[in-house]
Simulated assay, not measured.
Amino acid sequence: MDLEAVRTFAAAAEAGQFQKAAVDLSVTQQAVSKRIAVLERDLGVRLFTRTPRGAELTIDGQAFLPHARELLRAAERAVASVRTGRRPLRVDIIASRGAGSGLMRDFHRAHPGIELDVVMLFDVEAAVTAIRSGAIDASFRAVAAPGRPFPEDIESVRVLDEPLQLLTGPAHALAGARSVSVSQLVGHRIWMPGIAPGTEWAAYYDDLVAEFGLTIEATGPNFGSDALLDTVADTPALATFMSERTRQVWPAGYGLRRIPVTDPTLVYPHSLLWHRDNPHPALATLRAHLAATTPAHDAPGSWRPDWVLPD
């Protein structure tokens, strides 16, 4: 259906005169008459009756008017959904309880007037594809897997190096430690179900094992964080890694311990990715916010893979 004809019909219905509708639309009266004639022909009904006072809606015109207005509102919503600056900023995070989620909550508190759509994509390839297609504006990704450079149209900046902590149950051999060195973790089973082969986080932990000789097990199905906490709490031989900023709550009876890892501090690096031609004004605001509020990277005594995105 010709939206200009529908818009002209709605204007004429409100004005009650074709001449006034022409002035409101900045077109000629002849153009108004022609558009309405085309619409009437398409619909197969008469929409107006000419009177000495102007133009009155017929019964069919009265029936069509609310639908015409809804069509125009739908068209406005469709345009607004893709018009830069009027649609929400779409950002991808890895998990709802991870660092990316926390960074976006901080951004929302600092800029409550900016509308946000937050999504969770599976891996860096899905994120890059969505950025290039315009489905999202930005993505928080920990690392770029080795041998998979980003396309030239994708920009990136490191925004956060997040220390890992050891999570143990109360009966674990390291449960009483105030901190543990990486060398103390050698020989202990660190259980991390859900490490998917080929992902950026799998590459990170592969390098961690190769560098320090740790035992990281990804066996068994991933039933989610609640099942992981249950198992770690009840199994003295198992521990797991949890990022420092991960928001997690468990029953007090579990007795779980979060223990800093030192010598070196294992950091999980987070970068922000976006398309270099993305003009959304809120994207620039997000980048400026992150630059001003996140700490410096590559602190002395920390470890990350060599192929992590540079600053």
Rank of each mutant, 00 (worst) to 15 (best):
A252M: 11
A252P: 03
A252R: 15
A252I: 13
Y254T: 07
G255S: 05
G255I: 01
R257M: 12
R258S: 13
R258E: 03
R258D: 09
V261S: 04
T262C: 08
T262D: 09
T262N: 11
D263N: 11
D263F: 09
P264N: 07
P264T: 00
P264L: 10
P264I: 08
T265I: 12
V267S: 06
Y268P: 03
P269L: 02
P269H: 01
P269A: 00
H270T: 14
H270E: 12
S271Y: 02
L273H: 01
L273C: 07
L273T: 01
W274C: 09
H275G: 03
H275T: 00
H275K: 15
N278W: 03
N278Q: 11
N278Y: 05
N278I: 05
N278S: 12
H280D: 06
H280R: 01
P281I: 07
P281K: 09
L283F: 10
A284G: 12
A284P: 12
T285P: 01
T285L: 11
T285Q: 13
T285N: 06
R287P: 01
A288G: 09
A288P: 12
A288H: 04
H289Y: 15
L290Q: 02
L290I: 05
A292E: 10
A292S: 11
T293A: 08
T294K: 05
P295E: 10
A296N: 06
A296G: 15
A296Q: 14
A296P: 08
H297C: 11
D298P: 01
D298T: 09
D298Y: 08
A299G: 11
A299F: 11
P300I: 04
P300A: 09
S302I: 01
S302F: 00
S302N: 10
W303G: 03
W303D: 02
R304L: 12
P305A: 00
W307P: 03
W307I: 09
V308D: 10
V308I: 10
L309E: 09
L309H: 11
L309V: 10
P310M: 00
P310F: 01
